[in-house]
Design a protein around this nucleic acid. Structure first.
Lengths: 146, 146
DNA sequence: TATTGTTATACTCTATAACTATA
DNA sequence: TATAGTTATAGAGTATAACAATA
């Protein structure tokens, strides 16, 4: 807490912050399925990846408060993309699983190659794609650090 | 529009999307000055960089609708960080400039080395910082593409 | 008519606090 | 008491549509 970051890191931080905020705005507006928000889509992808899991486990993976996910989960259930079941062993817990429709939409989204971002990435040079690929773990770490 | 992106790009896009969204959430919550939102702060930084400029020019740089900036600009003015002046040559236009207080806060924010993200970056390896640095122009391009 | 900017309104995302049900 | 989840509420950020003022 007390140690200072280097000037170089501070500079890098400022640039990265701007770039990430702009890109995230783009991603929100440029998503493929207009009827489903980006947040439910990301949550659905996580459920598909880790199912079965509880809402609080999902919140942990998504790094959100459970209460922030209640609506998201309700939306996904109403749309028929996931199912909620009581855990018989512990009545407090709910277990989330994807439906076929949910898996389909996750796959469709994943494979949607004409997707805006994929196109953008496709127009990069080979070297730039390699750079992007290389830096992804770093971005993930920054995003998931405590 | 019709050409398909490669599978590799689609995959990269999905990963990047997740990473960027998470990091942007982190940035929103982890910012330094709690009293000023991130969006006004970013706008202020742009004004400081390009002043004098009009609200619509700012909207273009920030890639937002002018109406989305009206509140942001009002906030910055109320706080005494910027000034609004009528353009004498064209009564429709307003010209934005920073005040000393505005420049101070931009500089303070920039130099705030104990900032969360700078610290995170500081804890990366030298190689990871180099990777991050190298990929920044690419991220910026992705975020600012039409 | 076209441009600049604002207002009104609504939607998405996320948070905190208080609550219910279960353990 | 402690945990899982929900509800109520609030605030930030952004968009669209309709408007006023100016050119």
């Amino acid at each position: 807490m007390t140690k200072l970051a280097s000037p170089a890191s501070a500079e890098l931080a400022a640039s990265l912050r701007g770039a990430v905020m702009k890109l995230s705005r783009r991603l929100r507006s440029q998503r493929v399925d207009e009827s489903l928000g980006l947040s439910p889509l990301l949550a659905l992808a996580t459920i598909e990846l880790r199912e079965p899991l509880s809402p609080s486990a999902l919140a942990q993976f998504e790094q959100l408060r459970p209460s922030s996910l209640t609506r998201v989960i309700a939306t996904l259930e109403e749309r028929g993309f996931i199912e909620r079941q009581r855990n018989p062993d512990d009545g407090r817990q709910t277990v989330l699983t994807t439906t076929q429709a949910g898996r389909d939409i996750v796959r469709a989204e994943r494979e949607r190659r004409q997707e805006w971002l994929a196109h953008m990435i496709d127009s990069l040079t080979e070297e730039e794609r390699a750079q992007l690929s290389a830096v992804l773990p770093v971005l993930r770490r920054l995003g998931s650090a405590e």
